[in-house]
């Protein structure tokens, strides 16, 4: 398994000539003596959009938390941007360049106004107030959220909150994005808007999602976390050729008015 991985990596290095942004070797995590995952190995290269799939409770979110140093692994090593990460200090540097989008945007947005929230990261990176505000405004504008700058965060809708949360992450100019269920709880329109923006981003990504359609649009590589092991997965699509019935839902008034005839029922 390990040797296979190394061979795989060697192939990648010759193939891309880039070095890995993120390298994880032999990573293991246990919660209250109960192992969540162990011997996790993978690498992330510039341009990679890695789908991390697995059942509920498989430890996908935990793995993301371990990667940014919010949870402490029991074994293994994390090398980010060529630096071996041990201890809070090295992870503090990592977090400047690796942005995590949380599952629940209410956890991420804690400032009174949208502008303050988006400027929080840049301020922590050492920008002056004016620079941070300018950065926040540019980021909001790039996501089409400029008019939300003065809004109070807790009065936003779920979709707006998610977009602002993305802005708070992007304002720090991360090189890697970790997305934990980015479209969870969004309606179709909000999801479409978010996906369009995510697709246009240049960053390498690790995407956790249960939604196949989301992964299909965002990811170009996949790994699966099951029974505590991380394995490479294959994403493929193939045409299905089978006759089947569709469930159609129409307002009953329209049906009564004869709008939906038999010809429509393919």
């Amino acid at each position: 398994m390990v040797s296979e991985n190394i061979k795989q990596r060697d192939d990648r290095v010759t193939e891309t000539s880039h070095s890995a942004l993120l390298k994880v070797a032999g990573l293991g995590f246990a919660y209250a003596q109960k192992p969540v995952f162990s011997e996790v190995n993978f690498e992330l290269y510039p341009g990679d959009r890695l789908a991390l799939i697995g059942a509920n409770g498989a430890g996908k979110s935990t793995l993301l938390r371990v990667l940014v140093g919010l949870a402490k692994p029991n074994s293994g090593s994390i090398t980010a941007f060529g630096q071996h990460c041990v201890g809070e200090e090295s992870f503090q540097r990592v977090r400047q360049r690796m942005g995590l989008l949380f599952q629940d945007s209410d956890d991420q947005l804690f400032c009174p106004t949208v502008l303050e929230d988006v400027a929080f990261g840049p301020l922590n990176q050492g920008l002056t107030a004016e620079q941070a505000i300018a950065k926040a405004q540019t980021t909001l504008t790039s996501l089409g959220m400029a008019q939300f700058a003065e809004r109070i965060t807790y009065r936003l809708s779920g979709g707006e909150k998610r977009m602002v949360a993305l802005a708070t992450v992007l304002a720090m100019s991360p090189e890697i994005l970790l997305l934990d269920e980015p479209t969870n709880g969004l309606d179709a329109a909000a999801e479409e808007r978010l996906l369009q923006h995510l697709q246009a981003l240049p960053q390498a990504m690790i995407i956790v999602s249960h939604d196949r359609a989301v992964l299909e649009r965002l990811a170009n590589r996949a790994v699966i976390l099951q029974s505590g092991q991380l394995d490479a997965a294959v994403m493929h699509r193939h045409p299905h050729q089978h006759a089947h019935e569709h469930l159609h839902v129409h307002p009953s008034s329209e049906v009564e008015a004869g709008k939906h005839g038999a010809k429509e029922h393919h």
């Binding site: 938390r65 940014v68 919010l70 503090q92 977090r95 400047q96 942005g99 995590l100 949380f102 629940d104 956890d107 991420q108 804690f110 303050e116 400027a119 929080f120 990261g121 301020l123 922590n124 990176q125 107030a129 941070a132 708070t168 992450v169 720090m172």
Partner: peptide, 16 residues
């Protein structure tokens, strides 16, 4: 979770 999210954005005890 909030404190984790704040640390992810470089929070080091200083509020702005």
């Amino acid at each position: 979770r909030i404190s984790g999210a704040m640390r992810c954005r470089g929070f080091n005890g200083k509020f702005h």
